[in-house]
Each structure stands twice: as C-alpha cells, then as structure tokens.
Design a binder for these strands. Structure first.
Lengths: 338, 338
DNA sequence: CTGAAAGCGCTTACAG
DNA sequence: CTGAAAGCGCTTACAG
C-alpha cells in the first residue's frame, strides 16, 4: 500500500505538504503541488479513507434505514428511494450505507455509537416510530423521509401528501364528481401508522367532507400486483360512484387490466385519479391523472438537509413538505351538474 | 466521546486490557473482564469503528455495485437482491455500502484504492463487463453475482439459468408440447449481454432443439409492467403454439391479466411456464409452473463466498451455479400425442 | 510557503 | 494474566 510517506519521499517534501496538496489547500505553491501530484500519479497514490476518517472524526458516509417491506411484501418503490438517496449522497461526496437489521432502532444506536456514519436517513416512517427515540438518544444527525405526527424535533423532508390529497379532490370536485371510491393500502399499513398512508387518507377525507363529496373506502387485502381484486370489489359495492382515487402502487399498476376485464371504460364509465412515484408512472405508463411524486427530488432534498444538519447540529429543525405536481392525462370526465 | 482510555482509567487497567476484553480474548481473567465490562457499561462505551479499521486494516464493510435499472426502467428485483445481500453481510458482521455511480468501473477502482471496503459484490453482470477489469486491476476481493462468459478468474455465484431452462423445456416436452413461444426481455437487454438473459435463452434454444421443439421468440418493447402487449402480439403471431415460456419479470406479472383480457384460458388453451424471483412469485401469486429463483439463498451464498475470499485471497477461484427448484402449479396441460 | 510533531482511538507483538 | 509502547495513515495547529 502506498502512503503519504511514500509520496512525500518521492516528491522530496513532507507528509504535511502532501496532505495539503491532496486537500487542495491554496497555501501550497503551484510548483510544489505539481511535483507532489506527479509523485502521486507515479506511485498510484490514493488517500486512505479510514485514516482520514479517524483523523477528522468524519466518515463521509450516511446510513439509510429501510425495512424494504411493507406488509410483508417487497415494496415497489423502496429501491427507487435508495437509488436516489445514494446518488444524492455521492454528489456531496458521501457514501451510503445500507442499515438493514431486525431491530432497526438498535441498528441506528449501534451505528451511531461506533461512529460508522455521520448521519442517517429514515424511510418508511410511522407515527410513534421507535427509531426516532434511538436518534434522539444517540444524538446522531438524522432526517426523516416521512412526516410522523410527532417528529420530536428531528428534521423532516417529505412529499406533501396533504396537498396531494387536496389537489386530487379539488380536481374531482371541479369536474362535478360527488361520490368517489377510495382504494387504499391494506388495512395493516394504516394500523402500523405508516405516515404517508395515514396522512393522505386523513387529508383526503377532510377535503371530501369540505367539498361535500361522499367517499367509500376499500382496502386491499394484501400488497400484491394482482390487486385488481380490490378494484373489482369496490365497483361492485359502490356502483353509483363516478370516480375513484387510488393510493396503492400495486393497485395502480393493476388497475388498467382490471378495468379492461370488467369492461369499465375510463373516463366514460369512471373517472380515476391516483398518486404514484414518478418512476412508476413513467416506467409503467400509468394512464391516470395523478400526483407524481418526484422521488429523486424528495430524496435529493432529504440528503441536502442531512448534510446541512451534519454541518450544523445546532441549527433549528425544519419540516419540509414538498408539493408534487398534478399530471393531467384525461382520465377524469367533467360531469354535467344537474 | 468515551474512549478506551476512559474505560481503562475507570476500571483501573490499561488500554490493552480493555481492548482484549472487547475482542473477547480468553487471556483476560474473568474477574478483570467483569470489572472492565462494568466500566464500559457505566460509561456507555462502544468501540470506535474507524479507529479499529485503521488499526486492523479491515473495514468490515462490503460494497455492492448495481445499476438498479435494466433498460432504463427500474428493476423489479434489484431491491430484493440488495436486501438479501445486506442481511447476509450483517450475519457476518459486515456492513453494506451502496456503490452507485455513473461509471461503476471507476467507482470500484476508487472504493478499492481508498480502502473503504474489504470486498465487493457485482450485480447485473454482463459479458465483457468493464467492472471485471477494474476488479482485477485493483485486486479487491470480489464475487460476481452473475456468470459472464469470461469471468477472468473472479469468483462467480449465480442461479443456474442453464439448468432452469433445461428443466422447463423438459417439463413441456414430457407434457407433449412441440411448439412454444418464448417471451424474453427487451432486445436491448440481450444486446447489452446481460448474462442471465443470454444464458437462459441460449440454453433454452439448445434444449428445444434437442427435444425437437419449435420455438418462436418475441421480445418486449420495453420493461414495463403493462407488458401484456408483448403477450398479445405473440399469440397473434403464433396461434399454433401450445405453450409459452416467459423470462421477463414484468411480463410474468402482467400475463394473467393479458390472458384474461384475450379470453385465453391457462392451461386449457395455452400452457405457461416461467422463471421468476421467488419473492415476486410469492408476493404476486404468480400462478404459473415456474423455476423459482431463491434470491435469499443466492445472495447469501454470494456473500459467504466473498467473506471466504477476503479471508483467503489466494484460494482458487470458483464458479457456483445454484440449481433452483421447479414449482408445479398446474399451468401446463398434458397433450395427447397423436 | 513548508516541515516537525502531536494526535485521532484503536490493536498487537513483546516483555514481564 | 496484564501493561508499556509502537504503529496504523492521515490532519492540523504551530513554528519557522
């Protein structure tokens, strides 16, 4: 292994000078720097990350905690968030560590205590999430990608699911719809208090109430892609509904086939709106008017916030809910009010 | 931050003794060890991972390199592999670093050079994968989760796609089928030489030839879940085929709806077999006779192999292709030979 | 503008 | 069975 010592010797300077060149200090003359760079090049030197980390007390790595599963089934969008977070971290010069463990609160605690990471992003946040306690205890810089009812002074960045619900309801209301079906996640997701599910539903119900829209909620049995069953059930139970709001990635993906099978034409027979991760919408050509969650942007902002927090542990905490755009595709029909 | 010094002072012993206790050396008397443990407990000590890494020249972390995408669309199973790899690594006491970068060969090189990780797992391996060169150059311990045509003396662990193809063909042949449709990944996937796609197809074609089964291959336009289009096209083009082999996760997921829409009954009108990640099969209740790839087992074995390699860089390299079981669900009809 | 030196928090022969 | 000491490869005041 070639170290700074070797480079220093080769270039005829001291270790300190090499170090300054590596970190790009302007104090070093260009002439010396060139000499050092030549030596590094020649020897194939690369700074030892561990040694630097020990010296600076910074690992330049963040952790990301995710369960990967919701309700026992592999989450369709977990990978997307991971990817976007890792990419954003890299832009800041940080590596991303996958913090996967049985007991994720414990995982956070030990990662923090052993100083393996400088900060942590929490995904799939629930209300009363035990991981929040672990963060507070260990004092590790953290950002919740999710907005629990009580974030306990931990930074929050997330999509604005409240606004999303409001804008979808407004769109249906303005188009004259007065009776809608809500297709949700499995009940267990709400029971676990997963914040995005709970927040969207709550806001949706309130918006419908305010708009005097009648809602029937139907929940998927499980998180499967063949979720057409729930849609079928919904339409049977509520034949008078003129519109459907879907918040369930798998059901959104399965919906076009379900409609086709049942001979339901969108929007002639039924108007449909949804909320989905943008990547899902693109890749799968979701044909519904929908709020598109820009995962890359949300992840990016989350990492930005974490880096800021690492840099300034005492700054006041913030809650950022990012509005997501409504994408109109012609799946909502304007009803004649009569 | 509480260090070994603090613990040593508190317990009235030397740093060395504390270190031995932490690492569980049997040389320390139980009495002393108890004293030290009490001090650690009292002060809330936890070993500083970075310092240990510098001292031992081991990071206890592995990297995993994945593109997350195949053909521009988010891979349905990427997350599954990541999750299983991270879990397996954890069992060995290793952390998992997400190595995501534009130029993944370069990413590997720099991670290796800066000694951030002890070894690396490569996913989505292609024939002539440039990352293999980066591995050889940097000399970092590595395992390919995938089996390229030339693995250049790098360890390989993967599902046995050859055997999978053979067993699916045998099953169709024994059931009397003589003309089958093959639904593959988009052509771009084969063009990129993604090893699992290429290997499965090649083995399939050979097995069909040997069994005197006629094959028509149809490729998806893109990797979308609404891949029913390709199935529809296939059935139109080859109405005489009695069976279908699908190797394309998205198409497998979309197939039941596609059949339903087209009024095709399985297995009465058409026999169907597939190969899918087990997690997909479970979660999505794929109703087809299929080879189920046990991702967890493959990932686990991959990590085992990597840890062995890290422990013994000079051991001979191996290629492990793991047979996957055929799962019969009644989607193949026995034809009367006549 | 550059170098000598201390220090980051561990581990590990080695001596006792 | 335990401790003093060197060393891992960096960074960073500090002195010059």
């Amino acid at each position: 292994m070639v170290t700074m010592r070797d480079v220093a010797r080769e270039a005829g300077v001291s270790k300190a000078t090499v170090s300054y060149v590596v970190s790009g200090s302007p104090l070093i003359s260009e002439k010396t720097a060139a000499k050092v760079r030549a030596a590094m090049e020649k020897l194939g030197y690369s700074v030892n990350h561990t040694a630097r980390a020990l010296s600076t007390a910074k690992t330049n790595a963040i952790g990301v905690v995710t369960s990967f599963f919701n309700d026992g089934c592999f989450s369709l969008s977990a990978g997307t968030y991971l990817y976007s977070i890792a990419a954003a971290a890299r832009r800041h010069g940080y590596d991303t560590m996958l913090l996967t463990g049985e007991d994720s609160a414990e995982t956070i605690r030990s990662a923090a205590l052993s100083r393996r990471i400088d900060g942590v992003v929490i995904l799939d946040v629930c209300n009363d999430d035990p991981r929040i306690g672990a963060i507070k205890e260990s004092g590790i810089p953290a950002v919740l990608l999710g907005s629990p009812s009580d974030s306990q002074e931990v930074d929050v960045v997330d999509s604005n699911f409240e606004q999303a619900a409001v804008s979808l309801v407004a769109w249906l209301r303005d188009s004259g719809h007065r009776s809608v079906l809500f297709i949700g996640w499995p009940e267990s997701v709400y029971a676990r208090n997963l914040n995005y599910a709970v927040r969207f539903r709550k806001s949706l119900m309130e918006a419908c109430e305010a708009a005097r829209i009648q809602v029937s909620a139907i929940y998927a049995h499980d998180v499967t892609l063949g979720a057409s069953e729930v849609i079928q059930r919904a339409l049977r139970d509520c034949p008078f509904a003129t519109a459907m709001i879907i918040h369930n990635d798998a059901a959104v993906v399965g919906a076009p086939q379900a409609f086709e099978r049942m001979g339901v034409h969108v929007p002639e027979d039924l108007s449909v709106v949804t909320i989905v991760p943008e990547q899902l919408g693109e890749g799968m050509q979701i044909p519904f008017d929908s709020v598109r969650v820009d995962v890359d942007m949300v992840a990016s902002r989350t990492v930005d916030r974490l880096i800021e927090r690492i840099g300034n542990p005492d700054a006041p905490t913030t809650v950022e809910l990012l509005d997501q755009p409504l994408n109109i595709q012609g799946s909502v029909r304007a009803l004649h009010v009569g």
